[in-house]
Amino acid sequence: MTPAEIKTAIESQFSGSVLENEDLAENQVELKGEQWLEMATFLKNDPNLCFDQLECITGIDTGEEGPLQTRYNLHSMEHRHKIEVVISHDRETPKVASIEQLWRIGDWFERETYDMFGIVYEGHRDLRRILCPDDWEGWPLRKDYEGQEDYHGIVVPKIKEEEEWE
């Protein structure tokens, strides 16, 4: 199935959930975050779509005025088609439903996005930091991240300002 057909299938099942966004490419679709768990179950279990492999979850910080986004790359081993789902979050309290029960790798991928961006995945059984230590402060990959002063007595040097690249 082509990405356009997949988008139509999602729209027909969950009307009003596909959002228009002209920044996105053809194989990307932006969905509303409210019914994400039901939509993900539909994407996985529907026999025409059958997305059984979650390739990657990426967290994106679109800049100061933009939202935080989570992007899911899905792939079907049976039908060999792909789709990329984009969900935007509010910057103050970013949260969305967790899909770790559908694709078991979602467990670790969501923990990593939580660690780096602070996006809370509701329903995740064990959401804690995975790469940074448990008592690390801040969300490192956000664009406005300020490093902490010291960690257990070891001084963490400030991240230096880069000159402008033209």
């Binding site: 059984d52 492999q53 979650l54 694709w103 078991r104």
Partner: peptide, 13 residues
Amino acid sequence: VGVLPADVAVSFG
């Protein structure tokens, strides 16, 4: 030892 079934493998990526 340590048998990994195919569907578990695909679900775990």
